[in-house]
């Protein structure tokens, strides 16, 4: 992927989520599951076994009435940079970190379903197809042809809508250019967030909004103590929210 100026640049796609704005409405998760053909079962209340590429955690500050406050953490895949926990443990190279874009993708046709990557991930991002995904008969019509529905026995996770990166490149190639503008490759959740809490772009590219936002003092990341270097930054002006993001011995 080249930049406007034409040199082959390493992109590190990242995301910022403004936790103060997020109202926990769930549009990002619904849109993500529509876009990526994530299956659903009749009883979804067993959260230990449901498929959620984007899961929204409702967390309160632990105080009593009336000082209690609630904050919502939408949690996609962190696309960790440093020694990506899941990529380093997968025995069949079914999940790999792409150097040129920074996306950790998942090959669901190579995954042997050993689930070791799920044990390695501290963010509980990965979920396993415990059942064969089944859609009611007519609902198969609204499945997205850009993403192949998975089969049982494989692990899957948020891939930063990598198929949208390809579609954006298709359009760019069709117009004879090889670089992508900031707003051409955007995951479905960022595009659909009704309150504009999520921004997406290349962290290496200073003009992109995310690159500026991660410099702000409001920016923090989940579990920075473990040095997985996640590429999803959260923004909050409240100290108690930032305190929630990590374990302190």
């Amino acid at each position: 992927m080249k930049t406007e100026s034409g040199d082959q640049r390493i992109a590190r796609y990242g995301m910022t989520i403004d936790v103060d704005k997020c109202t926990g409405c769930g549009t990002c998760a619904v849109v993500c599951h529509m876009e990526n053909n994530v299956p659903f079962t009749v009883d979804e209340s067993d959260k230990s076994r449901n498929m959620a590429w984007m899961r929204i955690y409702k967390v309160d500050n632990g105080l009593d009435y009336p000082h209690v406050r609630v904050v919502y953490f939408p949690r996609p895949c962190m696309q960790c940079d440093h020694h990506t926990p899941c990529v380093s443990v997968c025995p069949a190279s079914a999940t790999n970190y792409d150097g040129l874009t920074g996306i950790v993708d998942q090959i669901n046709t190579r995954c042997i379903g050993c689930r070791y990557c799920m044990a390695a991930c501290p963010y509980m991002v990965r979920c396993f197809n415990w059942w064969d995904p089944v859609w009611p008969k007519d609902m198969e019509k609204h499945l997205n042809p850009d993403v192949a529905p998975r089969m049982r026995g494989v692990v899957e996770k948020c891939t930063f809508c990598s198929h949208r990166y390809l579609k954006a490149k298709d359009k760019a190639h069709n117009e004879g250019r090889d670089y992508l503008r900031e707003d051409e490759y955007v995951p479905a959740c960022v595009e659909a967030c009704p309150v504009g809490a999520m921004r997406f772009g290349d962290l290496n590219n200073p003009e992109h909004a995310v690159a500026q936002l991660i410099q702000s003092p409001r920016a923090f990341r989940l579990l920075e103590n473990l040095h997985t270097e996640p590429k999803v930054y959260y923004l909050s002006s409240y100290e108690w929210v930032r305190k929630l993001a990590d374990n302190f011995a």
Binding site: L100, T101, I103, V147, S162, L166
Partner: peptide, 10 residues
């Protein structure tokens, strides 16, 4: 050219 997995694996 890039041989990233997601380029071919949908």
């Amino acid at each position: 050219t890039s041989t990233a997995c997601f380029i071919c694996h949908k």
